[in-house]
Every structure is written in C-alpha cells, then in structure tokens.
Design a protein around this nucleic acid. Structure first.
Lengths: 341, 341
DNA sequence: CAGAAACCCACATACGTATTCAAAATATGT
DNA sequence: ACATATTTTGAATACGTATGTGGGTTTCTG
C-alpha cells in the first residue's frame, strides 16, 4: 500500500463503504456491532490513524490550544522566567488530560500574533502568558475580543479588562511579603521592580507593600523603589543602585525571585550579610529559590492550579460558556532570607 | 459575513476565481501584479488567514513538529529536568526560525506514542526528549524507523542505533569532570548516578570517570558508585547512603546537576564542608547550578546548539536527506565546588 | 494582417473525513 | 403472506485550499 492507510482502504478491505468506516470508528450506534468489530480489527492491523487535517477541516475544530509566550526584552533563551516554565508543565499536563494538544510559540509582544492562531485554525483557543508592557497588550486584547477569539490571559486581573484574565493576588501577596518583613523588625523596606502602570503585576505588589507599611504608620520612602525588569541582571543592577544611593534600608522586597537572586549577588559582593544586615523576600517561588544562600523566603504562586484554570477557562469559552476573570491566592513560603526561626 | 473569510469570499469581492486568490497569495508568477495587489488588499482588509487544516490536507504536510517529552518516574510537574526546559526554549525558537510550529506533549515512556503523531498527520516529524530506560525505548524506535517516521532523538548516541540520535559526549565529559577533580588532588571519587546499561548517558559518564582514574593509575572502587535517578531526592538519598557506607571519599561526581544539588544538601546536613571536605562536580549546567552554595562546578551541555541540530535533523529527514547521528562537545564550567582558584 | 507567442485567468478536481438523506435489508405484527 | 416499523448501509456532498489543464485575450513578429 502506497502511503498511509485511509478510511477508503479500510472500507475496501472490510467490504463496506467509507462512511461506514468513519461511523464505526467514531462509535456511532447506527453501525452493527459485528461490522464495527471487523472494521476496528482492520484499522488496528493497518495502523490506521484518522487524518487530523481532514478531520479538523470537516469538523471545523482542531482540539488544539495555542500557548503564546511573550518575552519582552531579551530575545535569547537564557532569560525564560522559571516560573513560566513551571507553568508550562502544568499547562501541558492539563491539556493532555482534557484531550487537547498544545501548540507552543514564543512571540514578541509587538508582533501581530493576535490575528494568527485561531484565524488560521491551528487552534481552537489561545492562552497568553508572559510579562510585558500592558499598554502594548491592551489594544490587541481588545481586537481579540472583537474577533470573538477564545482566549485567556495570565497576568494582572482587574474588572473591565478585555477578555478573561487569570492572575494571582499580587496586592495581597505584596501585603503578606511586607508584613513578614515588618514582623521581623524591618522598617526600611526597599522595593526592586518596575512600579509603573506598564507592569501592573509589579505595581500591585508594590501597592501591597505600601498598604502594609501604612498599617504600621510607616510612610514609604519613594527613593527606596527602584525600577527593575524581570531578570537577574536587572535585580543585580537595581540592588547596586540602591546601595550606592546611600538611602537607609534594612530589607528588600524583590518583585520576583529572579530579581531577588540578582540582588542577593550584589549584596554579597558589597559585603552585606543576609539576613542580618539586609533581609530579602522574593515573589513566585521558582525552583531555584530554595537553593540560594540563604534559601529565599518568597511568595508562592500556585502554577499548578493556575495552569488548570487557564486551560479550563479557554475550554469553557470554546463551549460558549462564561469564563470569569479570577484571582488566585498567593502564599508566603518562609525560608531563611528574612531571619525567621 | 458569517464565520471566517475564505478564499471564495475574497474571490467574489475581487471579481476573480478562488484559484486566482490562492495563487496570488502564494506569490505565483502567473497572476498579474495588478490583481495580486488587489487581492492582497482585500485579504488584509478581511483579516483573511489561510485555513491551515485545508491547506495541510491539500499539501499533505503540516509544517509542524511534535516534541515528545518523556518522564520516567514521577508524574508530577515538580520534577521536570531544568536542562530539558532550557532545551525546550532552544527548540521552540529554532522551530519558529525555520517556519515550523511546535506541538508539545508529555508522555509516559510506556504509552504508545510511537504510532500517534506523524500517522495522524498532526506533525511532519518528531523530536524525542527525555531520559529513560533505553531498553524500553529501543523497540519503539525500531518501529518508528520501520514506519518511515521522521524523528530525531536526544540522548545516548552510538553507531547501530535505530534512527538518528543527537547527544553530547558523555564519555569525554566524564573524563573532563574526573580530571578536574584529580587535578585538585582528589583521589577517592564517588559517582552518584545509575551506571547500568538502562541509563546509557549516566553509564558513559561513569566510564569516563573510570578511564580518567585509570590514567592516573587509580582503580575505581565500585562501592563508591551509588545508583541514583535524575532527581534531587535521589541525589540526597544516594549521598546519605554514601556517607553511611563509611567508605573513604573526598569528592563526588554527580551524574547530573539535579543529583548534585540533592547531594550537596545531604553533605551540608551531615556537616561536610564543600569543597574542603568533599569536592563535588555535576553535569548539565542547569541555571540553578550557579546559585548553589558554593556555586557548582559542572559539565555544560550546549542546549542551544543541541536544539538547533535536533530541529534541523528532523527537517533534513523530512526533505529525505540523511541526518547523521552526532555527538556534541561538553564543556567544563569551573565554579567553586571543587576548590578551584 | 495572419499566425505565433506570451500572458492571465477559470474550470475541474483532489486531499480524507463526517454527516445528511435516502434506500436496502431485516425484523415485527396482524 | 403482506404491510409496517426498525435497523443498517451507501450515495452524495461539504469542509477550504492548491494545482494541472485548457481557453481567451493581448502583444509581438514577419
């Protein structure tokens, strides 16, 4: 037999018509038990697999989700945020459980991905992952909504946003992080991370910090907030800038673990003891957080749950159900970088 | 207009036939400049995208590669080997550069993935990634070859294997690791990692160790080889077993960084100083290796190059070219866990 | 100005599957 | 035995694209 077997080949061997083969293999009750078994046997013997392209074309669905992954600054693969990699694992598994394939694609936020995947029928829905300038994002999200694309975004969640967004409670997480530092006697908390509205996640974490400080009657010193994108190098540079500023600080709240790890390196180089001189807390709980010296206290995002909710959210949209924007809890993970125990 | 635009819709608006639209958009020279521009304008305006399913069906190709990812023991996502995650980044990018999509799927080695992806025409070729019992593997690889499936495997590379395999030079890497330890005066080198033929990568690394020791007239003590799968917990347990065995050892060659990290934890708990009491070297150079305390000296596998070669290997097969089995160099990365400097 | 060449384009068709509709085969009831 | 209900199958068709083939028009050449 030349090439792969088709349903026609099976039909011929079974002495039935092609439609009967199709029906038999999809388990239609209108085909008799006897012929179904015969057809199944032949299909198995020929190693027959339904041609997904033909099937998708006919059914007008792909049973595939597309994962679009954004990275803002560095186009090299060293910089993939470990938290997103963890999420990727969860997404993949959830998709598999739900019987969907996952198409993965790295994108520049600036590219015109927003018209690509579902329109070209490569996928039934889209999951968007990645930090990035929200202003750049917003217009494209609106276009997606307008086009009726099924999509769910991970990130900053807020009422009135276009589409469905799943995010963690960054504000609450910020409060918890700050309280932990405050409880250990720190009063001069620096924040490393962009606090502009372009990075709403980081901004919310910072707002949580300010809120918690306010509860203790502390007014946040704006000079202790230093912009940093989500990368070790940025954390290192920001910490250096902080040290050189000569402002008084006894602790650091890093907007992400990656930033925290870079900052720890800077602190160590400048001879600060962690946590005696400077306590530090991160955000995300990436796998590496438990390996730093000292192990990094941080705020954990539940990537496992997040992955499930994201996938199920898109699937709901595909079934034309509502998929509400949701906020997941964040959880303090106490290790040793803040002087606990 | 109901639903997505098709080439017929464009044809009607442009006052031409559907085939002309198809040809125009594919840049066929048989369609006049003038009409091509007209068609392109309309297509853009309607946000038209070629339906991939229909296109694939017609062309009998998908321009998609499938990445099958195996994990042997733990079916939870905490255990994804960071090295493979790095590789994933490289694979994704290379695919994108080559104009291919990447379908990703986690599999159990035992499942019957070997008849699924290309047969169902979800992908033009397959990349296999993951450690695992090679014996389980082999039969399925042979079946893939027999079916004429286009695939490339990452792992243990050796002549006479079914299909194309890309791997790093584990033997050479093992020698380099051992020499580094020997050069720093270590004479009792323990090896943590399964050295059975079921895990040929680890076995080769162990063989390299023995070879290097032989060059110095040292006969390897088999009691210093302790089985460990590729996980932190396994590394921890193996190191504990080593310590409790009361055998003399002054250094550890861990078959992977993950194992090394687990072993370092065990050593620290039992009060060993690294590297003064015990030097330790890993394998892979995962991102976390530079974060351990002390930073882990290790053997680097070039995941970036590996990803490119894997993708290009499959693409060659798809074009019916030879894709030779290849061995990539491994590189010693000196940090501080062996007492260098 | 006739004939040839060059250029555009439309018609028909194939890719492999899934479903609608109608027909054939079988079973059921009187 | 005949009509009717029921089960099982086949013929026709659509999904949207890409391409081989041939027809019509224009331009060029002698």
């Amino acid at each position: 037999m030349a090439g792969k077997a088709t349903s026609f080949d099976i039909a011929q061997l079974a002495g039935v018509s092609q439609p009967t083969v199709s029906r038999a293999l999809r388990g239609s009750p209108t085909v008799s038990e006897q012929t179904r078994l015969r057809i199944e046997a032949i299909a198995k013997q020929l190693n027959y697999k339904v041609d997904k392209n033909a099937s998708n074309l006919r059914l007008q669905e792909t049973r595939t989700l597309a994962l679009l992954f954004f990275e803002e600054p560095s186009p090299d693969d060293t910089g993939i945020n470990p938290f997103f990699l963890s999420m990727l694992g969860s997404l993949t598994r959830t998709c598999a459980q739900r019987g969907y394939d996952l198409l993965i694609s790295f994108q520049q936020l600036s590219a015109n991905w927003h018209v690509d995947y579902e329109d070209s029928r490569k996928a039934d829905g889209i999951i968007l992952l990645g930090y990035g300038d929200y202003e750049l994002y917003r217009a494209k999200l609106e276009q997606l909504v307008e086009q009726g694309t099924h999509f769910v975004r991970w990130g900053f969640a807020q009422e009135g946003q276009p589409g469905t967004t799943i995010g963690c409670d960054n504000f609450r997480g910020g409060i918890d992080a700050a309280r932990h530092l405050l409880q250990h006697g720190r009063r001069h908390i620096a924040f490393l991370g962009d606090a502009s509205s372009h990075y709403p996640e980081f901004q919310d974490r910072y707002r949580g910090l300010c809120e918690a400080q306010g509860g203790e009657g502390i007014i946040a010193n704006p000079k202790l907030q230093i912009d940093a994108l989500n990368a070790q190098e940025a954390g290192y540079a920001a910490a250096m800038q902080l040290i050189d500023s000569k402002e008084t600080f006894d602790s650091i709240f890093a907007a992400s673990d990656t930033i925290a790890i870079g900052a720890m390196r800077a602190l160590r180089e400048r001879g600060f003891d962690i946590p005696a001189d400077v306590a530090i807390i991160g955000f995300d709980d990436i796998p590496a957080a438990s390996l730093t010296h000292p192990p990094l206290t941080t705020i954990q995002q539940d990537y496992r749950l997040a992955g499930e909710i994201l996938v199920d959210g898109v699937l709901k949209q595909i079934r034309n159900e509502q998929a509400p924007t949701a906020v997941l809890p964040a959880k303090l993970i106490v290790r040793k970088s803040c002087g606990a125990h």
